[in-house]
């Protein structure tokens, strides 16, 4: 089914249909991740793939137009290249370990330690969170910095147009232009935000964490932008507020590391944060997950603002 959707994505010429199909593709792959036991990943994929990235692509299509011309050269040469590469890769898989076997090499090195010791060492049941935020905290910090750097790149490339567009006053005091949508959105947005906070602070016990929470929180604001327009959204959360917050999230993450160093531990070793090492781990994880959530949420909102304000200018 995933393969069928992928084919449909490639065959379509209307870019609008492609983007919509790509959202379906993401949702399908999220359900496959659930089947493969990766609940945290499925969560992220559903929020990011089916939500944010679809919105970003639509925002781009507004500017670039949504029809594609048929390519000038034929499909034969690329098809041959692809077939050859695929055949070599399939040949390579013949030596790969079988799917799902518990004694595969991938399960031999550090994974048993994570699985057996992390509930005691870090003190939280969700192993994905303890690996993400504690054992491999350096990695995660790198990822957060990459997300932040992508934001800097987007702002440098297209920027955010902040001045309000001149529009007639009469639209504001009359009845709202899209009553059903706006009332529904007003009902939904608080629940989305509460859910995001739940995902943020319950990430140690169930699936969830800063990355997912940030994306869900951003999607609440994006819903607001879509139903109420950009000017009202600026009044709610101005980009000038979000920009320092995005940096603050990264600072919080790195700052936690520096604090652990000042308290005599190594960088990002949270055990020194409290008298009880396990309690210290918990404090550290909550702090950096909050940093991650803050950065991801603000970065997603700012990128969305950038695309939408550019689109309004073009229109």
């Amino acid at each position: 089914m995933l393969a069928a959707t992928a084919i449909a994505v490639i065959r379509q010429h209307s870019l609008f249909a492609i983007v919509m199909l790509f959202g379906i593709y993401s949702l399908l792959s999220a359900s496959i991740f659930v089947v493969l036991d990766a609940v945290d990943v499925a969560f992220t994929e559903a929020a990011v793939g089916a939500g944010i990235s679809t919105m970003l692509m639509l925002g781009t299509l507004v500017i670039t137009g949504h029809h594609e011309r048929t390519p000038k050269h034929g499909p034969v040469l690329p098809l041959v290249v692809v077939m050859l590469t695929g055949a070599v890769l399939v040949w390579g898989t013949l030596d790969m370990p079988p799917f799902g076997a518990a004694d595969n090499p991938v399960h031999q090195h550090v994974a048993p330690r994570y699985i057996e010791d992390s509930p005691q060492e870090v003190g939280i049941p969700n192993m994905v969170t303890s690996v993400l935020a504690s054992y491999r905290a350096y990695d995660t910090m790198g990822e957060v910095i990459v997300v932040f750097a992508a934001l800097v790149g987007v702002l440098a490339l297209i920027g955010i147009r902040e001045q309000k567009s001149p529009r007639p006053v009469s639209t504001t005091d009359d009845k709202p232009p899209r009553p059903v949508l706006q009332v529904m959105a007003k009902l939904l947005i608080p629940y989305i935000m509460i859910f995001a906070l739940y995902v943020q602070f319950h990430g140690e016990y169930g699936p969830g964490g800063g990355f997912q929470a940030g994306v869900i929180f951003a999607s609440a604001i994006i819903l607001y932008v879509l139903t109420f327009g950009l000017d009202d959204a600026y009044a709610l959360v101005a980009p000038s507020v979000l920009r320092p917050l995005a940096a603050l999230g990264v600072l919080l993450y790195g700052g936690t590391g520096v604090v652990t160093m000042l308290m005599g531990g190594t960088f990002l070793n949270y055990s020194v944060l409290a008298d009880d090492p396990v309690q210290g781990q918990l404090y550290g994880i909550i702090a950096i997950e909050f940093g991650v959530g803050l950065t991801v949420a603000t970065v997603m909102m700012l990128i969305f603002y950038a695309f939408i304000s550019r689109g309004e200018k073009a229109a």
Partner: peptide, 21 residues
């Protein structure tokens, strides 16, 4: 195995950021 989950979880979010770029 939780390790691949961690790697991919962060990769998805980084992926959407680079796609935006």
């Amino acid at each position: 195995n939780p390790l691949p989950h961690v790697l991919i979880l962060t990769a998805i979010v980084v992926g959407v950021a680079t796609t935006a770029l």
